[in-house]
């Protein structure tokens, strides 16, 4: 469970990205985070895996207050959170396979398990046949799927995705949404920042609307146009 109480984030340049925000997200929820650029969606996600710390208020994940987490405990928090980054953050010098396996290797997993699990998730995102290629040799959409595979490889309890369908054509984004839903049904909490009206409207999941760092709407089975325009 993710809980945020009266949380604000002011960056060192003075920008107030989040403003007195409170929310609870249950384990196994599927949440769309929508709002215009600069509304605070990315900062919201960064708070959860502690890339940033709140300036005021509290962020509590599974009962643990993350701003009180010592630096040495942070890695263990992150192992339970898969992140699909807006800019993918893939390593150009490593193959598709290595990029995914890397995420398991660096948390100290054994070679044989790494190999099996890496092939598993690559198969799941439909990229097993491109495992030996380098990121620059595949399309943007495929890079995104590699990023999703890497986020899933450690079987996280929480999956954060920042605009995961932004670069994809509609067919592929539908596939990815199906995949995320499947993962969600297995019990993983999915939080997805997006601009994609179609996807939000098709899925009919919880929709949280951010504006200028505040939650202006939180609907159980929301629709994009309805939530934003009103």
């Amino acid at each position: 469970m993710i809980q945020m109480y009266n949380m604000s984030k002011v960056y060192s340049n003075g920008v107030r990205a989040l403003d007195n925000l409170s929310i609870e997200i249950e384990r196994g929820d599927f949440v769309f985070l929508i709002g215009s650029s600069g509304a605070g969606k990315s900062t919201f996600l960064k708070m959860i895996f502690r890339e940033e710390l709140p300036t005021e208020g509290h962020v509590i994940i599974d009962g643990r207050n993350i701003e009180r987490l010592s630096d040495s405990k942070v890695p263990y928090l992150r192992r339970n959170i898969g992140v699909v980054f807006q800019d993918f953050k893939l390593l150009k010098s490593k193959t598709v396979y290595e990029n995914v396996a890397f995420a398991m290797r660096v948390i100290g997993m054994k070679g044989s398990i790494v190999d099996r699990q890496t092939k598993n998730v690559l198969d799941m995102v439909g990229l097993l046949h491109k495992a030996r290629m380098y990121p620059e040799q595949i399309s943007g959409g495929e890079q995104q799927r590699v990023c999703i595979a890497r986020a899933l490889v450690n079987d996280p309890g929480i999956l954060l995705t920042d605009e995961p369908t932004g670069n994809l054509d509609p067919d592929i984004s539908k596939d990815i949404m199906n995949m995320l839903k499947k993962i969600n049904l297995r019990g993983t909490t999915v939080i997805m920042a997006t601009h994609d009206k179609n996807i939000v409207d098709t899925m009919r999941e919880r929709v949280v609307v951010l504006k200028e760092g505040r939650i202006i709407k939180d609907t159980e089975r929301g629709l994009y146009s309805y939530e934003v325009n009103e």
């Binding site: 895996f49 890339e51 630096d71 040495s72 890695p75 263990y76 928090l77 992150r78 192992r79 959170i81 992140v83 953050k89 390593l91 890397f102 995420a103 660096v106 948390i107 100290g108 890497r150 450690n154």
Partner: peptide, 17 residues
Amino acid sequence: REEIEIMKLVGATNSFI
């Protein structure tokens, strides 16, 4: 540094890095 950043984001401990 890119690699290190990603290592940290996926949960590698400092000593491992």
